[in-house]
Simulated assay, not measured.
Amino acid sequence: MNISDHVARLRALLRIAAEVARLPPARLRFDTALNPELVRHTHRLFTRPHPRYRLVRNKSIGIALIDLRAYASGAAYLHALRRRDYAGYHSRRARERGYTVVEIDRNDYIDDIHGINTSAGERQGRPMDPAYAARTERYPSDGLCHYGVLDKEGRLVAYGDVGVYGDFAATDRLLGYKNNDGVMYLLLADIACRLIDDGRLNYLMYDTYLGALPGLRNFKKKLGFQPYRIRYSIC
């Protein structure tokens, strides 16, 4: 690596540092009273050293959050994202096409979930993990909330798993059939609306924002997610 390469790398690092410094801060609290084993496991996962940047905690920089307290109601959230191609617009159109969001027992939809998992060989330009190809015979209780999008015939077309860990919730697995009906916008927007109207949580997390590929980052932006610097506590 020559001097110009070192200079270019240094400039890139300085740009990243400046971008990180501008991120708004957020404090998220884990509460072991909710589910001691799950909460402690998730806290360890989120606060362990980042796999590439060992001085940084795993889920601390550029994490995608919706500040649920910023909206008086779920309806206000959808109204804020009402413009064309944003979550309010897409979720309204999906409902007009007969899609609904419900809480599900995954064991009632084993074949449907397997069908979704194997419906595409790659997503966001990356090959699907081979684990998705295996058909699960029975799902154990895992302490998460499970949501599904049903079409007008009652067929599961998308699903999402969400954990509540304290004063915040975080998405786990989110997957659906690829179509232009906006079902993934509907799924996540509906989850956000439920949490806002419930009024007990401060944030909804959807993994990283700055580290996401451009298409996924744009999707998160249209759902109202923004990147934050996060500090965690646990009680």
Results as ranks from 00 to 15, higher is better:
residue 136 T to M: 10
residue 122 E to R: 11
residue 99 Y to D: 02
residue 147 Y to K: 12
residue 111 D to Q: 05
residue 146 H to Y: 06
residue 136 T to Q: 11
residue 113 I to D: 03
residue 115 G to Q: 00
residue 137 E to N: 13
residue 150 L to H: 11
residue 131 A to K: 12
residue 147 Y to Q: 14
residue 133 A to K: 13
residue 137 E to C: 12
residue 109 Y to K: 00
residue 128 M to Q: 15
residue 126 R to T: 09
residue 125 G to P: 05
residue 124 Q to T: 04
residue 113 I to W: 05
residue 113 I to V: 08
residue 102 V to Y: 02
residue 136 T to E: 13
residue 98 G to W: 00
residue 120 A to G: 03
residue 112 D to G: 00
residue 152 K to F: 06
residue 102 V to I: 09
residue 145 C to A: 10
residue 118 T to H: 06
residue 123 R to E: 11
residue 116 I to K: 01
residue 122 E to G: 08
residue 110 I to E: 03
residue 110 I to M: 03
residue 120 A to P: 02
residue 131 A to V: 12
residue 99 Y to L: 02
residue 103 E to L: 03
residue 138 R to H: 15
residue 128 M to Y: 06
residue 121 G to K: 15
residue 113 I to P: 09
residue 106 R to L: 08
residue 140 P to S: 14
residue 114 H to E: 05
residue 122 E to M: 08
residue 145 C to Y: 10
residue 145 C to G: 09
residue 133 A to R: 15
residue 121 G to Q: 15
residue 103 E to M: 01
residue 131 A to I: 10
residue 127 P to V: 11
residue 101 V to N: 04
residue 116 I to N: 02
residue 140 P to I: 08
residue 103 E to H: 00
residue 148 G to R: 06
residue 114 H to T: 04
residue 112 D to I: 08
residue 127 P to I: 08
residue 97 R to G: 10
residue 130 P to D: 13
residue 138 R to G: 07
residue 100 T to L: 02
residue 100 T to G: 01
residue 105 D to H: 02
residue 105 D to Q: 08
residue 146 H to N: 11
residue 114 H to R: 04
residue 118 T to P: 04
residue 124 Q to R: 10
residue 127 P to W: 10
residue 111 D to W: 02
residue 118 T to A: 06
residue 125 G to H: 10
residue 105 D to I: 01
residue 120 A to E: 14
residue 111 D to G: 03
residue 102 V to E: 07
residue 128 M to E: 14
residue 120 A to W: 06
residue 150 L to K: 10
residue 111 D to R: 01
residue 143 G to V: 07
residue 101 V to H: 00
residue 130 P to V: 10
residue 144 L to G: 10
residue 144 L to W: 09
residue 143 G to R: 05
residue 136 T to F: 03
residue 119 S to E: 14
residue 118 T to C: 09
residue 151 D to L: 15
residue 97 R to N: 08
residue 130 P to G: 12
residue 120 A to F: 06
residue 133 A to W: 03
residue 137 E to K: 13
residue 119 S to M: 12
residue 140 P to D: 14
residue 145 C to V: 06
residue 134 A to W: 07
residue 99 Y to A: 01
residue 151 D to G: 14
residue 151 D to C: 13
residue 127 P to F: 09
residue 132 Y to L: 11
residue 98 G to N: 04
residue 133 A to G: 06
residue 134 A to D: 12
